[in-house]
Design a protein around this nucleic acid. Structure first.
Lengths: 245, 245
DNA sequence: ACCTGAACACCGTTCAAGT
DNA sequence: ACCTGAACACCGTTCAAGT
């Protein structure tokens, strides 16, 4: 995964300051930032690819709670305000991260396999990528594709696959949107706690639901989120497959 | 809708202070809160039902950005810290709102109609309620049902409907979860801007997707979010219906 | 153009003091 | 038990000053 990070590079060019990197955990490493004096540096310290990579590192380490503009700046050895020379807002940072992650979704099967199995692979891959990044879902869901080139590229490949499989053109977008809606909702489901359906002290007043939950648990092994995703996905594939001409 | 608010009542018992209510728009109505001196009041000013109703009013007026603990306290004429005698956190407030809204979802058809049309009505109602409240979706998706009695009650009715329709017990929860995932994702889709699929200057490099978008737009009239929701929902209903015994 | 440093207008939450 | 008022440790963002 690290190998796919954009513009793999250290936050700063190697310098004597690196010998102090063991102190990075200190609460206020002001001294590190102070190393660089005010005014425009000879070469730009930041760019969007570096900001994206740093954000992904931060998210990987501390989750989305740890992704603050201050923490992002600190990890890049700049003042928080420096970030605003490269992004307009924190939402822009999330958008950069989103577009980078979308490029990780596997669409290769659309070039090589029948429609059913291509959609299946794409959907599972898409869900798996964003299950780790659910805080991005509200961003993606309202994101004009113009602002996210990799995302647009994914849509082009997927819609091409639908078209080649004989889908009526006017149904392609609706089918993709429906699949995506299911995928986004299912990504949340992956993050739900194991006891989410424990009805606790209310069990006696909810016999039907409690029984259904117990019956599912008795089935055992497979993760409930995966069982539900598979069930829904196969129904959608079967239903949409019937639209093909 | 107002008639279904919990414990319909003013934020404070009628009092001479009400004559100053025209000043409530003032930036810092400290004087109103100062009207009540420190120490425990004779009768409690706050309760969870009142907090829920005030939160819903605030959301209705200014959206979820306007729902801050400070604004909530101001609308209830108390200091922000007073809220913490009745809720543990802001998340608790969102949970109260969520459970109240879930009670608005229409499950009545499960008692009176065939399974297909009951699921259809429930799903549309569920989506419509939360399309106006998408910031709650991350909360619901991870919410143990124990903490939300109305939500648990909805599950009981729905799972009872599935059972009565001949669903194998061990599939009921998975089918409901899959439907919910689709519903939550589709609720986001309702809020997407109309030009979300405008590929802009990239149109020439994405012919397949751009053509599909144009073809959908040419169909006209119906809202794209509704078309996609209908398409996915009918596929899920048809696919799940086949599981019945 | 692109950095620093100081400042702004917020957040949610805690806690002592009061009745 | 349930309020006020002050305080805390944050947020994202703006902007003048510097090179």
């Amino acid at each position: 995964m690290l190998g796919i990070l954009p513009a793999e590079r250290p936050a700063m060019p190697a310098s004597p300051a690196d010998s102090r990197s063991t102190r990075e955990r200190e609460p206020a490493p002001k001294t590190l930032a102070a190393r660089r004096r005010a005014g425009r540096p000879a070469a730009a310290v930041l760019d969007q690819a570096g900001i994206t990579a740093a954000a992904l590192r931060l998210i990987g380490k501390n989750g989305y709670d740890g992704l603050t503009m201050a923490a992002l700046a600190r990890s890049l050895n700049v003042a928080p305000s420096a970030l605003y020379n490269h992004v307009e807002s924190k939402r822009d940072v999330l958008l950069l991260v989103e577009d980078h992650l979308t490029a990780l979704v596997d669409v290769t099967a659309f070039a090589a396999e029948p429609w059913e199995s291509a959609v299946r692979k794409w959907a599972w891959s898409y869900r798996d990528v964003f299950a780790e990044h659910t805080p991005l879902i509200p961003v993606i869901a309202v994101l004009p594709v113009t602002d996210a080139p990799q995302t647009l590229s994914m849509y082009e490949t997927v819609s091409g696959g639908f078209r080649a499989a004989g889908f009526p053109e006017e149904r392609i977008v609706s089918a993709i949107v429906a699949l995506e809606s299911f995928i986004f909702g299912s990504a949340y489901d992956v993050t739900a706690p194991a006891d989410i359906f424990d009805s606790g002290s209310m069990a006696e007043s909810t016999p039907s639901f409690t029984g259904a939950v117990r019956s599912l648990a008795a089935q055992g092994h497979e993760k409930p989120a995966d069982v539900a995703f598979s069930l829904g996905l196969e129904a959608l594939i079967a239903g949409f497959g019937a639209l093909r001409e």
